[in-house]
Design a binder for these strands. Structure first.
Lengths: 147, 147
DNA sequence: CTTACTGCAAATATTTTGCATTTGG
DNA sequence: CCAAATGCAAAATATTTGCAGTAAG
């Protein structure tokens, strides 16, 4: 495989090498899993990884997710409850909406929230970290068919 | 507030009674703690409760917070990491900003986010639950004095 | 009295950590 | 070869649950 295998993107190898870090199969597997799943908790990443390769350890997944996040290859947000949710860092700038009824997670381009962010700066002197924003509520589907 | 005791508000006793639930000292303690602390994890609520009375059990705090939330006497949001944060249900409508550097939590009136919410409905057909909104970023203080 | 509620301890679940072993470069 | 990374198992956390005893109404 060249510098790009079409799955995890072109430059993650370079990003690792640049810092003297090692390219291990586990790291590639975790990165692939995050990308495949879109949004996933460490648990789900582990499950996905183990679908491909056997014996990858949970602690490796935790450690790897931390590492990849430091390198900006993945990001995480808190989509309710306990477990943080990781997603691919390469994806376009977006925040998340989470439906409290069906749990569906949707990516929304940050452009929509631009005015909101500006207002927070003006009124509250608070600089919003858009990529980390999560909006809870109800999706159209669940609003239409109340449980 | 008529029946009020000035701490936990006027009608929590009535709210409990209306459902055939019992008024226990533990429940009052937990409600008081949430109100005193403003924003607190179950752990912090437990600590605060135990400052007043000894021997209140952690599981009682968990169970009580769940119960009080069902009754809309408290609310919770996810302010990062693992533990949910509870706050008093009676407080005015607001959402939270959390500084990722110093961890400071600020309450912001939902009015500011009104346009944002409307845009989410128009563009995404998503009904925002404002009380549950948490915005991560950097407060003015930390932006001014970068660590 | 009746049964909702609490305390306690054990069961779960989740994430972290120390250390010996493996392995990428 | 050597430091970095992994696996493993134990530890640290956080939350839930079953059950017997306590107490609110």
């Amino acid at each position: 495989m060249s510098t790009s295998d079409g799955r995890t993107g072109p430059d993650w190898r370079a990003t690792l090498r640049a810092r003297g870090l090692r390219l291990t199969p586990q790291r590639e597997l975790v990165l692939d899993a995050v990308r495949t799943l879109g949004h996933a908790t460490p648990d789900q990443v582990l499950a996905q990884v183990q679908r491909t390769a056997t014996g990858v350890n949970a602690s490796t997944v935790y450690r790897t997710l931390d590492l990849l996040e430091k390198l900006d290859l993945v990001r995480h947000t808190h989509l309710g409850h306990g477990a943080p949710t990781y997603h691919f860092g390469g994806s376009a700038d977006h925040f998340h909406t989470v439906c409290r009824d069906c749990g569906t997670v949707t990516e929304v381009p940050t452009a929509i929230a631009r005015t909101f962010a500006e207002q927070l700066i003006t009124d509250q002197a608070f600089q919003t970290d858009m990529g980390h924003l999560t909006v809870f509520g109800r999706c159209s589907n669940c609003a239409a068919h109340p449980s």
